[in-house]
Amino acid sequence: MTMPISKKIIFYILLIISALVVFAPTLMAFVMSFMSNKDIMTGSLPTSLSFDNYVKAFGQFPLLKYLFNSLIVSIVIMLGQLILSSLAAYAFVFLEFKGRDVLFYVFIATMMVPFEASIIPNFHIIRDLGWIDTYQGLSIPFFALAFGTFLLRQNFKQIPKELREASQIAGMGDFKFYLSVVLPISRTSLLTLGVYGFLTSWNMYLWPLLATTNDNVRTVQIGLKQLQTQEQLNDWGVIMAGAIIVVIPTLILLFLGQNKLQKGLTEGALK
């Protein structure tokens, strides 16, 4: 059924206005990151655009180090979540053993515990392990993920049971079946979960704030806070340049994986 022209125009107007409003803060930050401080202070439109703010941001702050730290931590968390979630999901779908259902409810129960509510003992655990200012302290607490387990379990359930039976007759063990059959079949879901894990880890704030005390392992989000609080001259161009650097990797990832992410999140949430 085709839409009448008048209705189409109304929708396009709504779409464009909404897009401008939603995207305005990001666009503004992007433009500001190329503006001179004088233009920003006087509130004029940009008279000249340059990369000066980026040069300054990288020059005055160890931004590259922060970016590298964030990259390492996010990738490690992502891989950890993929491995642990897929192993657990495999057990819930393909293995039958006593206590499986109880354990499944234990996994559900973990979703009811907000990390913020257990942050104090977690901080003490990391401190007592000597993991403050280490990559493992920033990543390992987030490896086990009930949401990821459910998402993959949903996907694994669609793999025909006959496939497992056939592989059993061929003498294939569970771990081999998991590695060589289940994981390759489910690569789309694994990718979705990977994107989700990377996004959430990259954007993490409270835990890196607590678990890092120096620039060696500090992530880029906390680096941005440092940039904002230490920038004495109120140099908003430099601060925005820093913020743009922080959001570019996740925005690109989001634009590439948006469709899959939407499908995956809806499935994990509602099925």
Binding site: S18, A19, L199, Y205, A243, V247, L251
Partner: peptide, 11 residues
Amino acid sequence: YSSTMGISVAA
């Protein structure tokens, strides 16, 4: 419209 999901709380 989905872009703000990619923008961290700090940014």
